[in-house]
Nucleic acid binder design. Structure first.
Lengths: 218, 218
DNA sequence: CGATTTATTGAAATAAATCAAACATTGTGG
DNA sequence: CCACAATGTTTGATTTATTTCAATAAATCG
């Protein structure tokens, strides 16, 4: 029941920002949007920070996690381009957020409660639902089922149902699914042997039988 | 990785209600409160029902669960006297709620959004936090740790740190902690052997070393 | 009281973790 | 460009925790 200890501490980097109306998301918005860039491994926020902003991923991928007393790490969620993250239950952050690869994100300050209240509620509901869905996977599924549903979901979120690129390492996946890296790796191999997927390389996966994958993951 | 199938279908009972100002919770409230009574096993709401009310438990205990495609059951939460439940992400219920024993509950209608909005948000946040806490237990804890933290939490919620009464069966506990009834039972025995708890009877537990119990449950 | 459900215990099977090593990929400095 | 470290991934052998199957014991109910 032990898991990975976190190897490298996140870099405290100084992201640079742009305010470019030609940038798609900036142009689409009524107000100008500031995009911040972070390099792989950079910390976006840490547990204990005030939870005063939300973030939208413009490109790249983010992991949100918590550290346990014994050094184990639980990755609560991965966030891909187009997704908003940073919503938390309290005024202080309980989780850490890090760039998995080079990313660009838009910050949105939660200044006035009145201004954003309906928005916040809908985000809270969305977070709740995502968490409940994730709960189901962890509570009741085998390693095989967890990995299958993870891949199916990643494909869905990336918009390409046949090919998935995994920006995160096996260790990240393991810490998300409550497994070890060895089990994750063996499960990929099993999925490959059963002709459900193909490994282009370790991070690029071709989904051969999506239907079957979905059914395995419940 | 299989679990209990649900044996008995819940009773569709016809609860009777009172509106008694002498009833503690009714007296404390500015508006008169209606208390509904349900017998053990009675269904309070079902998946698919409109999620238009919240409930406060006056006495007794409630289980909230979902059923999986293969008949497995996941109990998301138990609710004891004084606690409010019934908050859901969507307009339709995803979960079932049942009386574990004889209960009394107060329903509160979520009629006008404006009226209760700040309230709803705080409940959403509370639900989110509870779910995240529960997530941690399921994702990263052994059977021993799960049962230990479950008992410690139940004691805390009942307000008596030395003695816990468990209104729910071993199967309920198993379906909540993602274990089998046999493992739950064996874990109680192990906790007893290690002099952390004592079994007055199978549903009444004396906590001998609370501190240790909490530390095991992280 | 007998009958049925609920809880405990035991033995065997299994899934996943752990320990250990090989293999692949990437980047670095010579 | 190669040798080589460093990192990430896969595979193998063994151990361990938990489930499954099976039986007994205890509690509850009519």
């Amino acid at each position: 029941m032990l898991a990975s200890t976190v190897a490298q501490s996140p870099l405290r980097s100084h992201p640079f920002t742009i305010d470019d109306p030609a940038f798609p998301s900036a142009a689409a918005s009524p107000r100008p949007q500031i995009v911040s860039f972070f390099q792989a491994g950079a910390e976006i926020y840490a547990a204990g920070d005030p939870a005063s902003s939300l973030y939208r991923v413009e490109f790249g991928a983010v992991r949100v996690y918590r550290l346990l007393a014994d050094g184990r790490r639980q990755i609560i969620a991965f966030h891909l381009a187009g997704e908003t993250f940073g919503f938390e239950a309290g005024v202080e952050r309980e989780f850490f957020a890090e760039a998995i690869n080079a990313i660009g994100i838009c910050r949105r300050h939660l200044s006035t409660v009145d201004d954003v209240a309906p928005d916040i509620l809908s985000l809270a509901l969305q977070s709740l639902r995502m968490t409940q869905r994730y709960l189901l996977v962890l509570a009741r599924h085998s390693a095989f089922e967890r990995v299958a549903s993870f891949l199916a979901e990643m494909a869905e979120r990336q918009g390409d149902l046949e090919h998935v690129h995994l920006p995160m390492s096996r260790m990240d996946i393991a810490d998300h699914l409550g497994l070890t890296i060895e089990t994750v790796s063996r499960t990929f191999t099993r999925l490959k042997e059963q002709r459900l997927i193909e490994l282009v390389d370790s991070r690029d996966i071709r989904i051969l039988r999506r239907r079957a994958l979905l059914e395995i993951g419940e």
